Lab assay of single mutants.
Amino acid sequence: KLETFPLDVLVNTAAEDLPRGVDPSRKENHLSDEDFKAVFGMTRSAFANLPLWKQQNLKKEKGLF
């Protein structure tokens, strides 16, 4: 399991300012399950079932792209 970080560490943070080991294209993977659901309004599995373009739009909207 990946290390999780608080939302404010990941949202609207440039790649070079992210904690070590965080993939800038997969910031959402480093949210706790609770934060993930609070941000996206759905579970990880529901998010994973969305088309890629919709996932990317949601990530942009939430500052996690």
Rank of each mutant, 00 (worst) to 15 (best):
L50G: 00
L31K: 00
L7K: 05
L18A: 04
K59W: 03
D35C: 06
N29H: 10
R20Y: 15
K59P: 00
K1G: 13
K62F: 11
D17A: 07
V39R: 01
V22I: 08
H30A: 07
D33Y: 06
Q56C: 11
K37P: 03
V9H: 05
P24V: 07
T4A: 07
E16M: 07
E3Q: 13
A15H: 10
L64M: 07
P24Y: 04
A15E: 15
E61Q: 12
T13D: 06
H30E: 03
A14Q: 10
K60Q: 12
M42A: 01
T13F: 07
G41R: 10
T13I: 10
A46R: 11
K59N: 02
K54N: 11
V22S: 03
A46N: 11
R20T: 15
D17Y: 07
L7T: 03
L64K: 01
E16W: 05
K54S: 10
S32P: 01
L18H: 04
A38D: 13
F47I: 00
E28Y: 02
T43K: 07
D17Q: 07
A15W: 12
E3I: 10
V9C: 10
A46K: 12
E61N: 09
V9K: 09
K37G: 14
N12C: 12
K60H: 09
G63T: 01
T43N: 13
K37N: 14
L2S: 11
D8E: 14
K54M: 14
N12G: 10
E61V: 09
S25K: 11
L64W: 04
K54T: 13
D35W: 01
V9L: 14
A48P: 00
W53K: 10
N12E: 07
F40Q: 00
Q56D: 12
L18G: 05
L2T: 13
S45D: 14
F5K: 03
D8C: 11
W53Y: 14
G41T: 06
D33C: 07
K37S: 14
Q55G: 01
P51T: 06
D33K: 05
G41E: 15
L2P: 15
R20N: 15
E61C: 10
D8A: 13
K37L: 14
V11T: 09
E16N: 09
A46W: 08
R20C: 15
G63R: 05
P51G: 04
R26I: 05
L18C: 07
A15N: 15
N29M: 15
N49F: 10
T43M: 08
K37Q: 14
F36Q: 00
N57Q: 12
L58E: 04
D17T: 07
K54R: 12
R44S: 06
T4K: 09
Q56R: 11
Q56F: 09
G63Q: 05
F65A: 15
E34A: 13
K60L: 11
E3F: 09
D23I: 05
P6L: 04
E61D: 14
L58P: 00
D33S: 09
M42F: 07
L50A: 02
V22G: 02
D33M: 06
R44I: 05
G63D: 06
K1P: 13
E3P: 15
L7I: 12
T43W: 05
L31N: 01
P24W: 05
R20L: 15
G63A: 04
L64F: 07
V22Q: 04
K54G: 07
N29S: 09
E34T: 11
K59T: 04
A46V: 13
P19V: 01
P6R: 04
L58H: 05
E34C: 07
G41P: 00
F47M: 01
G63W: 02
R26T: 08
N12I: 06
S45N: 13
Q55T: 01
T13V: 14
L31R: 01
L52N: 12
V9G: 03
L2Y: 15
K27C: 05
S25D: 14
P24F: 04
W53N: 09
F5D: 01
N49W: 09
K37T: 14
F40S: 00
V39W: 04
E34P: 10
L58T: 04
F47P: 00
F47G: 00
D33P: 08
W53P: 08
A38H: 11
N57V: 12
D8G: 09
A14M: 07
L58K: 06
A14I: 11
H30C: 04
K60C: 11
D17M: 05
A38Y: 14
F5Y: 15
L2K: 10
K27H: 02
F36H: 00
D8I: 10
E16L: 07
V39S: 06
K37I: 14
D33R: 05
W53T: 10
R20S: 15
K27R: 15
D23P: 03
L7W: 08
L52F: 11
E28S: 01
W53D: 12
A38I: 12
E34V: 10
T13Y: 08
S45E: 14
T13M: 10
L2R: 10
K54L: 15
P6D: 07
A38W: 12
L2W: 15
Q55D: 00
L31W: 03
L18V: 06
A15T: 13
W53M: 09
L31E: 01
L52T: 13
E61S: 12
D35F: 01
R26S: 09
R20D: 15
E34M: 11
G63V: 01
R20F: 15
G63Y: 04
D8V: 09
L31A: 00
L50M: 12
H30F: 09
L50D: 00
A46H: 11
T43C: 09
K60M: 12
E34S: 12
L7S: 03
G41D: 12
D17G: 07
P24E: 06
K27V: 15
A48V: 10
K59E: 02
D8T: 09
G21V: 07
E28K: 01
Q56M: 12
D23A: 02
F40E: 00
K59A: 04
A48I: 08
D35P: 00
A14W: 06
K27G: 03
L18T: 06
F40H: 00
E3L: 11
P51N: 04
T13H: 08
T13E: 05
K62M: 08
S45V: 14
V39N: 02
T4M: 08
A14C: 12
L18N: 04
N29V: 08
D8M: 08
A14S: 12
K1N: 13
F47N: 00
K54W: 12
L64H: 04
F65S: 15
R44V: 05
S32I: 05
G21D: 09
G21A: 08
P6W: 03
E3T: 11
D33A: 08
V39H: 05
S25L: 15
L64P: 02
V9N: 04
A14R: 13
G21H: 08
N57T: 14
K1M: 13
L52V: 14
K1R: 14
S32M: 04
F47V: 00
N12T: 07
F5Q: 04
K60G: 07
Q56W: 09
P24N: 05
F40A: 00
P24A: 08
